[in-house]
Computed example of a mutant assay.
Amino acid sequence: MRLAGKVILVTGSCTGIGKAIAQRCVAEGARVLIHGLESDWGEALVQELGPDKAVFAHADLAHAETPNQLVDLVLQTFGRLDAVVNNAAMVVSSNIQTTDLAFFRRVLDVNTVAPFALIQAALPHLTKTNGCVLNIGSVNAWSGEPNLLAYSVSKGALMTLTRNLGDTLFREFGVRVNQINPGWVLTENEAQRKQEQGQPSNWYETVSPLIAPAGRILWPAEMAAAAVYWLSDESGPISGQVVDLEQYPLIGRNPPKH
């Protein structure tokens, strides 16, 4: 039980990586706050994990009051807060032609500003428990794809936030802040998104070996397994670090030989 007794708030945890993290946290002995916009899925996950181990909050992170509401709910339900996982994000396609200012601001609000605001709201309580923050970024933070402009910029900003707060909050409050950058992960939303773009239902079975040397893309459970290390006491005093979780090197990568 690597997370025994801990209480962890996981945003965007009704599906995908966030759901896998919440499930793994409970399996490791933690209690969790599930958050998302999909009420049916959120309530179903609470029933799966056990009402004594999970509580669900339906809330839009773009609203200024949401971070405080989430922190208040987790404290009212479980009496403490040991970790925040900033996982929720708008994963949306856009480029220089299709990214208007309103859209850009919305993406930044959800993907970058909301994690900052949640850290602010949670900090007094994380200080009491020598807690931590785990931000879920993306390998797109390093530059991103042409059609993921706003999303990539938001994740790049989140990465800088992690490194900055990972230093200052640990020095001043004993609160660690780290980040994992998943590569291409087979979440429910990603599977649906590709089908909406015209791909066959089994598109993930025929991904190029250049992108997926393993013959498949990553699974949410693999991201959750990595998350546990950063949420547990095993990671010790490590703070301000960003780790890429992909199956090939992002820099200096060579195409496969034929």
Results as ranks from 00 to 15, higher is better:
Leu134Thr: 01
Asp167Arg: 15
Thr160Pro: 12
Asp109Glu: 15
Pro146His: 09
Ala122Lys: 01
Gln120Tyr: 06
Ile119Phe: 01
Thr162Ile: 01
Ser138His: 11
Gly156Phe: 01
Ala150Met: 08
Glu145Ala: 14
Asn111Phe: 10
Ser143Ile: 00
Leu161Ala: 08
Asn130Ala: 05
Gly131Leu: 02
Leu123Ile: 05
Lys155Tyr: 07
Leu158Gly: 09
Asn147Val: 05
Asn140Ser: 14
Leu123Gln: 08
Val110Asp: 09
Ser152Phe: 03
Lys155Met: 06
Ser143Asp: 12
Val107Asn: 00
Leu126Lys: 06
Glu145Gly: 14
Thr127Gln: 14
Leu108Ala: 10
Met159Asn: 07
Leu165Ser: 05
Asn111Asp: 13
Gly137His: 05
Ile136Lys: 01
Thr162Trp: 11
Pro146Leu: 05
Tyr151Arg: 11
Glu145Asn: 13
Pro146Phe: 03
Asp167Asn: 14
Asn130Ile: 00
Ser152Tyr: 05
Leu134Cys: 07
Gln120Lys: 15
Pro146Val: 07
Asn135Trp: 03
Thr129Phe: 02
Thr160Asp: 12
Val139Cys: 14
Pro124Lys: 04
Gly144Pro: 09
Pro146Gln: 11
Ser143Ala: 06
Ala117Ile: 00
Ser152Glu: 12
Ala150Tyr: 00
Leu161Val: 07
Gly144Ala: 09
Asn164Leu: 15
Ala157Gly: 14
Asp109Pro: 04
Ala121Cys: 09
Ser138Gly: 12
Gly166Cys: 10
Thr112Ala: 15
Phe116Glu: 02
Asn164Lys: 10
Ala150Thr: 13
Asn164Ala: 15
Leu158Trp: 09
Ser138Ala: 08
Val113Trp: 02
